[in-house]
Amino acid sequence: MLEQRLLEKAIGDAGRLIAVEPFGEGSIARFAIDAGEHAGDWFVDSSRQPVARETGFVIRSREGVAVARIWRHPLDPRLPALRTALDPVRLGRIANAAGSGGPIEARVLAYRPGRRAVVRLTQHGVHLFVKVVRPGEAEDLAEIHRACRAAGVPAPEVVHWTPAGVVVVRDAEGTPGPVAASRTPAGELLDAVDELREHLLSVRTRRIARASAGSRIDWHLDRLAADLPARAADARALLPALVPHLRRVGQARVVHGDLHIGQLFLTGGRVSSVIDVDTAGLGDPADDTAAFIGHAIASAVTNEVAGRTADAALLQAIADEAADRWLRDAHAAALTALHLVGHGIRAADRSPEAASLLLDRAQRIAPARARR
């Protein structure tokens, strides 16, 4: 692929492709180099989106336009605060200034290049979570946390934020959703999720939620077709089946933007914490439906392929119950199928079998699955 050739030209090592995400006019591809002077994670950005300061190699056109950027983690040019969030010396200085001493462990829990990262800090057994975003976005992120809490949505409390692109939040309270799901009947779990979604509707914000999965349908289907060449025709056949139904029904409402079991913590049968409200804002409620069902099915498939049949059955039962409760129109069914395509792309490199099964599920749940 082009990105791999560009990386090899820049540093002399093509690396191993890990993931590709659409971004701007192109994408950001992630590669791993396991040994040698260039060991680490490398990124090739073909988005042509401007940055405030270059932090790696830049490949320009004859006209001087940056057509590709290449950098090594954590030197993301759009997330300049990421380097600070992972620097133990700087973290120690911050802690000492706040009157707290002792070693700090920093671990990256999530990273979407060019967009955001989540770093867990642990000191004296206490966790704080640093959300690293683009400079100028931190205040907005702190505000959506505050607005959620004011409306009864139990987002974690923000304890600090800086315009450089850092928001620090406290740990979530309660039992993690995947653990709670193993102890709670599916109907009761979904009752708690319904209550949370009702509270979300009352959040006062003009913020726009994360873009719908339907906004990049061509990229998703082309990518899965490339990852599963033996089933390229099946992937591309989803395009005419889904496109006519990818239109929001009704006005925009406040949604989580990436709702799934892993975002939830429960206490006493209710959601006591919901994390990653970074994606929340005005959007399409069907996207939350699709994200939840799609994630549950993808988790079931992952466990099925790994031979964990009991866990797979539990997660599939939750997905089926959610589909019976929420999947009531062709629009929501189409979005759910597209979320499964996205999960298939992420699974393809490590498990083509899982990716193929997810494509099967997407075909089954496409609009013919919906009740009109």
Rank of each mutant, 00 (worst) to 15 (best):
P185D: 07
E173H: 13
V167W: 07
T184E: 14
P178A: 02
G177M: 02
A213T: 13
V179E: 15
R204A: 15
V159P: 07
P185K: 07
I208W: 00
L190A: 08
H160I: 02
A155Y: 02
A181I: 10
S212K: 05
E195Y: 11
A155Q: 05
I208R: 13
R197P: 04
V168I: 14
R170T: 14
T175A: 09
R183A: 15
V159Q: 11
V166I: 12
P176K: 08
A180Q: 10
P185E: 06
V168C: 03
R170F: 01
P156I: 07
D191G: 08
R210D: 10
P176V: 04
V167P: 03
A211F: 11
T162P: 00
L190R: 06
A181Y: 04
L200I: 11
S182R: 14
R210I: 02
A209C: 02
D191P: 12
R206A: 09
R197W: 06
A151C: 06
A186E: 14
T184D: 09
P178W: 01
R204G: 08
V158P: 03
L190W: 07
V153L: 05
V193Q: 08
V193P: 09
S212Y: 05
L189T: 13
L196Q: 03
T205M: 10
V166K: 12
E188S: 14
S212L: 13
D191R: 14
A151V: 11
G214C: 09
S202H: 15
P156D: 10
L189D: 09
V193N: 06
P178M: 03
E173T: 15
A180I: 10
A155C: 11
V167Y: 03
L200P: 12
V179W: 12
V158Q: 01
G177H: 00
G187A: 14
E198G: 15
P154F: 10
S182I: 02
T184V: 11
E195C: 10
P163F: 06
A180K: 06
H199D: 09
R204S: 10
R207Y: 05
G214H: 09
A209T: 06
V158Y: 02
T175H: 02
V166H: 08
